[in-house]
Amino acid sequence: MSSADAHARWEGSTSKLGERSEYKRIWNRQAQDYDTAALAVAGHTDEATLDLTARGTVDMLRATVGIEPTDLILEIGCGIGRVAGRLSQECLHWFGADISGAMLGHAAGRLKARPNITLVELSTVGLGEFPDDSLDLVYCTVVFMHLLEWDRYRYVQEAYRVLRPGGRAYFDNVPLDTEHGWSVFTASARYPFARRPAHISMTSTREELRTYLAKAGFDAARIHDLANGFIAATGTKPVAPAGPDGSSAEPAV
């Protein structure tokens, strides 16, 4: 299939903005074949470029939240498993969760040789399939731009729940206040009203991400400026239980 064909098919697979909340249907529709799925989640289809961007993501994780060989890691919105091939080599086990079963089908095809990988289809927004206090690192990359704000916060809350005390969280998005972020914002703004697709990128502000992490209960929330023009919010689930003085480690919501 030519690249032009793949682009045409992808554009034909997109949904309208008003359907943005119907994540499962929207992303299953954009995963009708591997090339369409790769374009939808990564913007390109060749394995070499996918691997290059995966290395970049692993480097960002290593630099911001660290990666331990004993880590149980969960990626929220793993799509076709772009990052998993690289990251699974550096941890004990990698879990890939996505609301689109069709995307996970492509991921399973790409990652079948990896022994320490588990793919989990999410039934809805949230991580209800995972137990409390069980994982070391939860990250979510190049996903928040496709979510409504309430759903972004829902995943932050759920990450807090499934992380063990001391576990780390990472969420990134395109920021509004950088040159790259502003270009994404204005490009989206130029779309004619009637043609805005459901998956259209929406930026975050630093304060938005910082607030999500703080309200969810994370300690040491930080905002990192990344080399790719994104910002990342990171935090740690407190080890100490809630105290009677209000300086609690429990979620504020």
């Binding site: 004993t70 086990h93 588990t118 399939e129």
Partner: peptide, 22 residues
């Protein structure tokens, strides 16, 4: 390091059983 590894493997088993049960 060995204790951490064994603890992580125990948690991994727990998560996998939880996923299978779910």
């Amino acid at each position: 390091a060995e204790v951490k590894r064994r603890e992580a493997e125990f948690r991994l088993k727990t998560v996998q059983e939880f996923l299978a049960f779910g």
